[in-house]
Design a protein around this nucleic acid. Structure first.
Lengths: 172, 172
DNA sequence: TGAGCATTGGACTAAAAAGGTCCAATGGCT
DNA sequence: AGCCATTGGACCTTTTTAGTCCAATGCTCA
């Protein structure tokens, strides 16, 4: 797990495009200016997103970048994976590690349970969500998505016997 | 958020001590050998844990390290914070960033909801859990703890109106 | 056909963090 | 006083991230 600044750049750039009319083509410099980003660095990021099919690039008269798909169809997960690598969410919580079931880290078990929830959430959150509800601010729908992801995970694990602890609260 | 190899070393070292009889004093080299860790690097880690009051160091006849508290009283959270810094769980998901409500990152809102769950989980998971149920393997109690943390968060957010989405499942 | 221009692709540098090592000093015991 | 593991810090190397630069490409319009 590592989410670097480049992922943030990618998200902010895409959100900027999502705020334009559908299918709008926007030049790099304008995106960078509108989102207060460094143009050369954004260029690097946008190239990755283009290669991974999230952006479409245009040359000639109407040049620049446009979203390859509708904003509600581009998940945060895709964006981050395109930039950080497809194994982003398969990796250990200790980001430098490549631990496996055979050679597990101390938190391997814990992470096996948390990771799917995080992935589900990132899968359901889209560029449109970020663009509509403010690039930044916390909103109720996020809370709802978190609950959903948690519920999904709980349902998936409901077969395993629970154990109790001081103050334990059981779902279902 | 960043969990480096040093945290892993800290956890593995503590777990090793937790597997000994209570209050046992164990020399660094023995801990390192038993857990297959590099002694010089573990030394660095143990020093941090000693300063933060999780380990007690002993000189003279019975020298070495011992746990400062009972294994069930040392949470994973404490260990990680001692090593990575107290602001570990206060930080942005983009680990290099110091974003705030005033200057939020694109996932600021999302992270505000996820972070508390993660912290709660790390708070409830202890060295004893890791030592008892295998340093590594996933176990039912972890699943239970995850559910608890999720339930807690859901309860905390239950006041906010939910919104629906294709395939949404509501808890409660 | 050729000029214009933004994207493209890659190489490249610099800064920061992580990972790892080493050594002199310390302090409690025997 | 001597032993010896902890202590504390400095130090080095490697990796990763961040950021820059430039020549090449390809589409359009004049």
């Amino acid at each position: 797990m590592k989410m670097s600044k480049e992922s943030e750049y990618g998200l902010m750039g895409l959100v900027q495009l999502a705020k334009q009319p559908a299918h709008a083509v926007m030049q790099l410099r304008d995106v960078a200016a509108a989102a207060s980003l460094l143009e050369p660095f954004l260029a690097k990021t946008f190239r990755k997103l283009t290669v991974h099919g999230l952006l479409r690039s245009h040359r000639g008269r109407e040049r620049g970048y446009s979203l390859a798909r509708a904003p509600h169809d581009i998940s945060i997960r895709e964006v981050c994976e395109a930039i950080e690598g497809v194994d982003l969410f398969q990796r250990c919580i200790f980001w430098s590690n490549a631990c496996s079931d055979a050679e597990p880290c101390p938190l391997h078990g814990m992470w096996r349970h948390v990771r799917p929830q995080l992935v589900t959430l990132m899968e359901r959150l889209t560029i449109e969500d970020l663009a509509k509800h403010g690039t930044s601010l916390s909103r109720d729908n996020v809370a709802s998505l978190v609950s959903q992801a948690a519920a999904d995970a709980a349902a998936a694990n409901s077969s395993s016997p629970a154990f109790t602890r001081k103050g334990a609260i059981h779902v279902r």
